[in-house]
Amino acid sequence: MTVRVISQHFDPGEQINAFVKDHHGAGAAVTFTGLVRSSPSDPITTLTLECYPELAVNQLDAIRSEALTRFNLLAATIIHRYGTMKPGNPIVQVMTLAPHRGDAFDGAQFLMDYLKTDAPFWKKETGPAGTKWIESKSSDDRARARWE
Protein backbone atom coordinates (compact mmCIF):
# COMPACT_ATOMS: atom_id res chain seq x y z
CA MET A 1 0.00 0.00 0.00
CA THR A 2 1.64 3.20 -1.13
CA VAL A 3 -1.07 5.66 -0.15
CA ARG A 4 -2.83 5.05 3.14
CA VAL A 5 -5.54 7.24 4.68
CA ILE A 6 -6.17 5.80 8.11
CA SER A 7 -7.93 6.56 11.38
CA GLN A 8 -5.60 4.51 13.62
CA HIS A 9 -2.35 5.56 15.26
CA PHE A 10 0.79 4.48 13.38
CA ASP A 11 4.39 3.94 14.48
CA PRO A 12 6.73 6.08 12.33
CA GLY A 13 9.73 3.82 13.00
CA GLU A 14 7.93 0.66 11.97
CA GLN A 15 6.81 2.35 8.77
CA ILE A 16 10.29 3.46 7.66
CA ASN A 17 11.82 0.10 8.55
CA ALA A 18 9.27 -1.73 6.42
CA PHE A 19 9.66 0.84 3.62
CA VAL A 20 13.45 0.47 3.20
CA LYS A 21 13.56 -3.26 3.75
CA ASP A 22 13.34 -4.63 0.22
CA HIS A 23 14.94 -1.95 -1.93
CA HIS A 24 18.51 -2.84 -2.64
CA GLY A 25 18.96 -0.45 -5.57
CA ALA A 26 18.44 2.68 -3.52
CA GLY A 27 21.17 4.79 -1.94
CA ALA A 28 18.87 7.25 -0.20
CA ALA A 29 15.70 7.08 1.87
CA VAL A 30 14.07 10.24 3.23
CA THR A 31 11.29 10.21 5.82
CA PHE A 32 9.24 13.16 7.01
CA THR A 33 6.80 12.77 9.89
CA GLY A 34 4.35 15.56 10.75
CA LEU A 35 3.38 15.62 14.44
CA VAL A 36 0.62 17.25 16.47
CA ARG A 37 2.22 20.37 17.99
CA SER A 38 1.37 21.98 21.30
CA SER A 39 3.58 24.88 22.41
CA PRO A 40 3.50 27.12 25.52
CA SER A 41 2.30 30.06 23.40
CA ASP A 42 -0.32 27.97 21.58
CA PRO A 43 -1.24 25.01 23.80
CA ILE A 44 -3.68 22.43 22.54
CA THR A 45 -5.14 19.29 24.09
CA THR A 46 -6.39 17.57 20.92
CA LEU A 47 -6.23 17.98 17.18
CA THR A 48 -9.00 16.51 15.05
CA LEU A 49 -8.58 16.00 11.34
CA GLU A 50 -11.69 15.73 9.24
CA CYS A 51 -11.26 13.98 5.91
CA TYR A 52 -13.02 13.17 2.65
CA PRO A 53 -11.42 9.74 2.26
CA GLU A 54 -12.37 8.97 -1.34
CA LEU A 55 -11.05 12.32 -2.60
CA ALA A 56 -7.98 12.10 -0.32
CA VAL A 57 -6.92 8.79 -1.87
CA ASN A 58 -7.43 10.21 -5.38
CA GLN A 59 -5.43 13.34 -4.60
CA LEU A 60 -2.61 11.55 -2.80
CA ASP A 61 -2.34 8.93 -5.58
CA ALA A 62 -2.01 11.72 -8.16
CA ILE A 63 0.59 13.65 -6.12
CA ARG A 64 2.56 10.47 -5.52
CA SER A 65 2.56 9.50 -9.21
CA GLU A 66 3.82 12.93 -10.15
CA ALA A 67 6.62 12.75 -7.54
CA LEU A 68 7.73 9.31 -8.76
CA THR A 69 8.14 10.58 -12.32
CA ARG A 70 9.47 14.03 -11.60
CA PHE A 71 12.19 12.95 -9.14
CA ASN A 72 12.92 9.46 -10.54
CA LEU A 73 11.97 7.90 -7.23
CA LEU A 74 12.24 4.15 -6.79
CA ALA A 75 9.39 4.21 -4.28
CA ALA A 76 7.19 6.65 -2.38
CA THR A 77 4.68 6.10 0.38
CA ILE A 78 2.24 8.56 1.96
CA ILE A 79 0.44 7.77 5.23
CA HIS A 80 -2.09 10.33 6.46
CA ARG A 81 -4.22 10.03 9.56
CA TYR A 82 -7.60 11.48 10.33
CA GLY A 83 -9.64 11.52 13.54
CA THR A 84 -8.67 12.88 16.95
CA MET A 85 -5.01 13.00 18.01
CA LYS A 86 -2.95 14.24 20.94
CA PRO A 87 0.21 16.38 21.03
CA GLY A 88 3.18 14.32 19.86
CA ASN A 89 1.09 11.92 17.77
CA PRO A 90 2.09 11.44 14.15
CA ILE A 91 -0.35 12.92 11.61
CA VAL A 92 1.40 12.29 8.34
CA GLN A 93 4.44 10.46 7.05
CA VAL A 94 6.00 10.65 3.61
CA MET A 95 8.84 8.37 2.61
CA THR A 96 10.87 8.45 -0.58
CA LEU A 97 13.54 6.20 -1.96
CA ALA A 98 15.96 7.15 -4.75
CA PRO A 99 19.42 6.24 -6.00
CA HIS A 100 20.80 9.53 -4.56
CA ARG A 101 19.82 11.86 -1.74
CA GLY A 102 18.94 14.96 -3.79
CA ASP A 103 15.94 13.36 -5.45
CA ALA A 104 14.84 11.64 -2.25
CA PHE A 105 14.87 14.97 -0.33
CA ASP A 106 13.20 16.91 -3.16
CA GLY A 107 10.57 14.22 -3.64
CA ALA A 108 9.64 14.23 0.04
CA GLN A 109 9.50 18.05 0.14
CA PHE A 110 7.34 18.12 -3.00
CA LEU A 111 4.92 15.55 -1.55
CA MET A 112 4.55 17.51 1.69
CA ASP A 113 4.17 20.90 -0.02
CA TYR A 114 1.45 19.53 -2.30
CA LEU A 115 -0.49 17.59 0.27
CA LYS A 116 -0.68 20.58 2.64
CA THR A 117 -2.83 22.46 0.14
CA ASP A 118 -4.28 19.75 -2.13
CA ALA A 119 -5.32 16.87 0.11
CA PRO A 120 -8.84 17.11 1.60
CA PHE A 121 -8.09 17.18 5.32
CA TRP A 122 -9.21 19.91 7.70
CA LYS A 123 -7.64 20.54 11.11
CA LYS A 124 -9.61 21.55 14.16
CA GLU A 125 -7.77 22.15 17.41
CA THR A 126 -9.05 22.14 20.98
CA GLY A 127 -7.20 23.89 23.80
CA PRO A 128 -7.80 26.06 26.88
CA ALA A 129 -9.23 28.79 24.62
CA GLY A 130 -11.82 26.45 23.08
CA THR A 131 -12.14 24.79 19.71
CA LYS A 132 -11.29 26.33 16.37
CA TRP A 133 -10.74 25.35 12.73
CA ILE A 134 -7.21 26.05 11.52
CA GLU A 135 -7.13 28.49 8.62
CA SER A 136 -5.13 27.71 5.52
CA LYS A 137 -1.80 29.58 5.34
CA SER A 138 -0.51 31.64 2.45
CA SER A 139 2.97 30.32 3.29
CA ASP A 140 1.69 26.84 2.38
CA ASP A 141 0.41 28.16 -0.96
CA ARG A 142 3.82 29.75 -1.63
CA ALA A 143 5.64 26.53 -0.71
CA ARG A 144 3.51 24.64 -3.22
CA ALA A 145 3.87 27.32 -5.92
CA ARG A 146 7.65 27.00 -6.10
CA TRP A 147 7.27 23.56 -7.72
CA GLU A 148 5.10 24.87 -10.58
Partner: peptide
Protein backbone atom coordinates in the same frame (compact mmCIF):
# COMPACT_ATOMS: atom_id res chain seq x y z
CA UNK B 1 -18.20 21.66 -1.12
CA UNK B 2 -15.53 22.48 1.46
CA UNK B 3 -13.15 25.16 2.77
CA UNK B 4 -9.45 25.41 1.78
CA UNK B 5 -7.64 22.24 2.81
CA UNK B 6 -5.33 22.18 5.84
CA UNK B 7 -3.78 18.72 5.84
CA UNK B 8 -0.25 17.59 6.51
Amino acid sequence: LFPPMTGG
